[in-house]
Amino acid sequence: MFNSYTESLAVFFGINVLMAFSVYLPSSAGLISLGQGGFMAIGAYTSALLTAKDVPFALALAAGAAVAALIGVLVAAPAVRIRGIYLIIATLGFGEIVRILFINLEFAGGASGLSGIRPLTTLWYVVGVCFFVGLCLWRLRTLTLGRAILAVHEDETAAEAMGIKLLQTKLIAFGGGAAIAGLAGGLFAHYALFIDPEQFGFSRSAEAFLFVVLGGSGNPLGPVIGAAVVTLLPEVLRFLQDWRMSFFAVLLIGCAIWRPGGLVAARPPSRL
């Protein structure tokens, strides 16, 4: 049905969609993270080390997500008290700490990485996880938690005065984003079959952030479109050869000028 090129493209697209979701969820509570690569690394290493011990794949993936979420909450508990640019810097620092931690973890392969990971990720696995996460995020909008997250984003003081627990809401949003990045990491590890700390560095985090900025953070479709453009467009533009990435850069600047809110506009409340 697919040749190996389109299949790998589809798998990496799916993993990127998850990374985009992992930025989207905390960002809808006003928490911008530039450290999602770190959570992806935690999910990737946790699940890869577990499947090496013959733990079933689904369980290993869930464990990777859970460990990422736990660390996400631990990191966020002090970090969500700061806002805006300071939180971005804190998460950026976190991503670097995780990268350097894995370089120094001997049992995880250190700087030379972890190889011989079992090929357990299939395209349908990725599609299934993407749909599951996407549906949960879409559903969130009409739940009390989803409304609370948006209210916190809009006006913290008014949200708190209306009985919303600020810290708890932010921790759920941030921990949820970390869990999704952990899932993406687990799927990535069992498809790439080799992981090293450099794969989850700043460029990975920045890329995930870019998906959401480009696609728009108003609803879950935005990150999907953002991930699609960033993942697939460079492939489509191959005919431009050396000018490929330059064209891509121009396109991004164009988006910033003409669609500053992202490619997908926020769903207006009137349609709900």
Binding site: E154, D155, A159, G163, S270
Partner: peptide, 16 residues
């Protein structure tokens, strides 16, 4: 809350 509709704004009040 600007991104929430009128009814959703009031629904936030019910949360507790």
């Amino acid at each position: 809350f600007p991104v929430l509709s009128v009814i959703e704004n009031v629904m936030v009040g019910c949360h507790s």
